[in-house]
């Protein structure tokens, strides 16, 4: 029998394996290390221990300026959006009971992309700034993601979502959304084209504190909310019949989870863009590390997702120092082969 830590109060319970707890602590340490390295590397190198000093308030003024105003927002956006996408993918995989589900593959990211690009294009003064408040972007992205999620849900009401149909619908929605996005870009001013293309691939370039402050509340509200519901996710994994038998209100929970997952995707995509394969890869890797009980799986996915996106961003801006390669390119380069590996592995299940 594995050693388990359980924690129960009224209306809440959590079961975490002792070994998984250690894994989580190690992952958190790695994430912190990546944050320090990632903040330190750039045109001006700052050693990780100096970065740590800045965080603790002991750094010299020059380091503090570079870290706090220039580099930290970008790393934080990478961290938050990575965590959001990973948790969103973990939820979808439980609800749809398909290991291949992730927000980008089923077209939800595409919906968010259209809406966000539309706001960026139509509500700008043609130069650099938006004419509407910045928090419209995540709201629009959330709305776009919600529309696609709702359509998916309506289409699956009749016969239920089989994995194959889900992937097919995802491809269909993705293609349609791509067409819409291209249309929006073509209709808008030309100087937006480059910006929009960068955004679609997924990049955390040019993040600032204002963006961090907008995305932070979403994550601060929704991530804990999902941890709170983790036990219902465990039940969802078992299938409709078992879940109903265990006394869960399966249908209501599923709608709730789809909503939460969409909210997280919308917020993550709003500033970081369509970073692909994070929502697929992070939960899988997390499952390998801590098992499939959602109490430990969700935090592990969140940490892995953050690490993944931060590393992709770090690679993107250091590999060819003169150019910025969007983080989304690296997540895809690592993610697509892994997806193919999963595909070959899953031959017995599909």
């Amino acid at each position: 029998m594995k050693k388990m830590w359980s924690w129960r109060v009224k209306g809440f319970s959590m079961l975490v394996e002792a070994k998984a707890l250690w894994t989580l602590i190690i992952l958190a340490a790695i994430a912190l290390l990546v944050v320090c390295v990632s903040v330190g590397v750039g045109d001006m190198y700052i050693a990780p221990q100096d970065v740590l000093k800045v965080f603790l308030g002991w750094g010299n003024a020059y380091h503090t300026l570079v870290v706090e105003t220039l580099r930290l927002p970008r790393v934080l956006i990478a961290l938050l959006s990575g965590a959001g996408l990973a948790v969103s993918g973990a939820i979808l995989q439980a609800v749809i009971r398909n290991p291949l589900a992730s927000p980008d593959l089923i077209g939800i990211t595409g919906g968010a992309t259209v809406a966000a690009v539309a706001v960026l294009t139509f509500f700008s003064d043609g130069a650099t700034s938006l004419v509407v408040p910045l928090y419209w972007v995540p709201l629009a992205a959330f709305g776009g993601a919600m529309v696609v999620a709702l359509l998916m849900y309506l289409l699956s009401l009749q016969q239920g979502i089989t994995p194959f149909r889900l992937i097919l619908l995802g491809i269909g929605f993705y293609t349609a959304m791509q067409a819409f996005t291209n249309l929006v870009i073509l209709l808008g001013p030309e100087i937006r084209a480059v910006q929009s293309k960068t955004w679609i691939t997924g990049s955390v370039y040019g993040s600032n504190w204002e963006q961090v402050m907008i995305i932070l509340p979403w994550m601060a509200i929704f991530l804990p909310l999902i941890f709170f519901f983790a036990r219902h996710l465990n039940v969802q994994q078992l299938g409709d019949q078992v879940a109903t038998g265990l006394g869960g209100s399966v249908h209501r929970d599923r709608v709730l989870f789809l909503f939460l997952s969409t909210a997280l995707t919308g917020a993550s995509v709003a500033f970081a863009g369509g970073i692909s394969f994070v929502g697929l890869l992070a939960p899988h890797a997390a499952r390998k590390l801590v098992g499939s009980s959602y109490g430990a799986l969700l935090p592990a996915s969140a940490l892995l997702g953050s690490i993944y996106v931060m590393l992709a961003d770090l690679l993107g801006r250091t590999l060819y120092a003169a150019h910025e390669i969007p983080a989304g390119v690296f997540t895809a380069v690592i993610g697509a082969p892994y997806f193919i590996y999963l595909l070959i592995q899953s031959r017995n299940r599909t």
Partner: peptide, 23 residues
Amino acid sequence: IKLTLAGSAIWALFSSLTQGLLI
């Protein structure tokens, strides 16, 4: 199903690389 999934994986990989090069 495997063919379709492989198609979408290759598609995602190649189009990300294309976007990266373009940027």
